[in-house]
């Protein structure tokens, strides 16, 4: 059985770095681990060996139990289409501009691709542990809602409206042009936009039965996974964290921990308050160095307040992770960053 950990949170808080760190540390305790990354910074990608242009998991150099893969949204959707659509429909869809636009831009499409990949890796049975770094969202929990949203798009709700039929088939398009109101709408909107959309949706619709079964399976994997939320003390990620908790509660997913990244040492706060004069010969240096501690201590205080507030509000452990400059990229530094974090414990 693969145990899955989903690392979610606002953009820019270090989700990918934390996912990699947790991967290294779980691999080092003997679990065959796969980290599915979304868009790692260059040096982290180099360390994980995911700089290649495909999304095939590879063993990470010098880390025998650790494997890494990078999400390729287009490739994932092509694989989905080939798997679930008839060959002639697949050929049509893959060159359809509406399909390309959906795969490239529909926010749920990127999340769906990630969730589908996650499910494949779980079902492969190759890994003891799978760590999923989640795609950036337009705010909120896109990743968790993607199966349902994608299902809506494909379910034919829109299509039924367009064709006025409960069971649309290709012959319905003929009747489409016979509906004067839609013809007028097309004239106002331009060209044959609506009928092109209907055409595209008809093709998608042929995959509906299989994709909806698939979406249900993916949702089960999402529910069975452990979810942690990463944040920093900045107002935007804190706000997003609250939103994540609210929205996840709505779909009955309870995060198990908060990873609070980029914390400063709490010892700086006490030291700033008690610091007397710094007795060194270079008086100018004494002044600027003391003021520097004061400034960073005010940051440390802000971090500490934010972390305590979150912990109290949600009654969850907050793992405080030290702010490393530059961010860790070697395997050892990645493992060090999350050394005190316990996840996926039974």
């Amino acid at each position: 059985m693969t145990k899955t950990l989903i690392v979610t949170g606002a953009g820019g808080v270090g989700k990918t770095t934390l996912s990699a760190g947790l991967g290294v540390s779980l691999a080092r305790s003997g679990h065959t681990t796969l980290v599915l990354t979304i868009d790692p910074a260059r040096r982290l990608a180099d360390t994980l060996g995911v700089a290649a242009l495909d999304d095939i998991p590879r063993q990470v150099a010098n880390e025998p139990h650790l494997h890494a893969a990078m999400l390729d949204v287009s490739a994932s959707w092509e694989a989905i289409i080939h798997r679930y659509a008839d060959p002639d429909v697949a050929d049509r869809l893959l060159v359809n501009p509406y399909f390309r636009a959906m795969a490239d831009r529909f926010p749920a499409a990127q999340s769906y691709a990630a969730a589908e990949r996650m499910a494949e890796y779980i079902e492969s049975g190759h890994y003891d542990v799978l760590i999923v770094d989640t795609p950036p969202s337009e705010g909120g929990i896109d990743f968790f809602l993607a199966p349902a949203k994608t299902g809506d798009l494909i379910s034919g709700k829109l299509l039924r409206w367009l064709t006025g039929s409960s069971l649309p088939g290709r012959s319905i398009l003929y009747r489409f042009t016979a509906r004067p109101m839609l013809r007028l709408a097309d004239t106002v909107l331009g060209g044959a936009m609506l009928s092109d959309v209907a055409d595209f949706l008809l093709d998608l619709r042929t995959m509906y039965d299989q994709l909806s079964v698939r979406s249900k399976a993916i949702e089960r994997h999402l529910r069975a996974a452990e979810t942690v939320i990463a944040t920093t003390a900045d107002p935007t990620p804190i706000h997003e964290t609250r939103r994540f908790f609210d929205e996840l509660a709505g779909i009955k997913i309870a995060p198990t921990a908060i990873l609070f990244n980029q914390m400063l040492p709490q010892s700086w706060i006490a030291s700033d308050l008690t610091a007397g004069r710094l007795e060194i010969d270079d008086k100018d240096l004494a002044v600027v160095a003391t003021r520097n501690l004061s400034l960073w201590a005010s940051e440390a205080r802000r971090h500490s307040v934010a972390a305590r507030e979150l912990s109290a509000r949600y009654g969850l452990p907050v793992h405080e992770l030290t702010w490393q400059v530059p961010p860790p990229t070697t395997l050892d530094d990645l493992a060090d960053l999350v050394a005190d974090v316990t996840v996926l414990a039974d």
Partner: peptide, 27 residues
């Protein structure tokens, strides 16, 4: 900029003032 340089770090005693100075310079 905090107004000190890396070679001045050795003039600072071990402790939070020096740690914060190192953090500042790394950034």
């Amino acid at each position: 900029s905090a107004g000190f340089t890396a070679d001045q770090l050795k003039l600072l005693p071990t402790g939070p003032i020096k740690e914060a100075a190192e953090h500042q310079l790394s950034i």
